[in-house]
């Protein structure tokens, strides 16, 4: 059941992205992707990196609070 939910969740971006691919079919990804299109991919990469870093931080706080919650239940 759990795995099924994760699988469905992973399908969502695939579906959404395939939609945008259909909308932008003339947008051919070239060999030097990072240098194409006015180097917009570089901006994208940096923003995604910041976002992922933020997520990792939030997730680590989440885990720490979980641990403290467990300790509190035991005492």
């Amino acid at each position: 059941m759990r795995n099924k939910i994760y699988y469905l969740l992973l399908m969502i971006p695939v579906m959404l992205l395939s939609g945008t691919v259909i909308f932008a079919q003339d947008n051919v990804v070239t060999e030097s992707t990072m240098r194409s299109n006015g180097k917009i991919y570089v901006v994208m990469a940096i923003c995604v990196t910041i976002l992922v870093g933020l997520f990792l931080y939030v997730a680590s706080i989440d885990k720490k609070i979980g641990k403290i919650e467990k300790e509190n239940q035991n005492t």
Binding site: I12, P13, L16, L17, T20, F23, A24, N27, I40, Y41, V43, M44, C47, V48, L51, V52
Partner: peptide
Amino acid sequence: VYTFTAGFLIK
């Protein structure tokens, strides 16, 4: 993550 990629790339 989808927003931050597609948001930069779509027409």
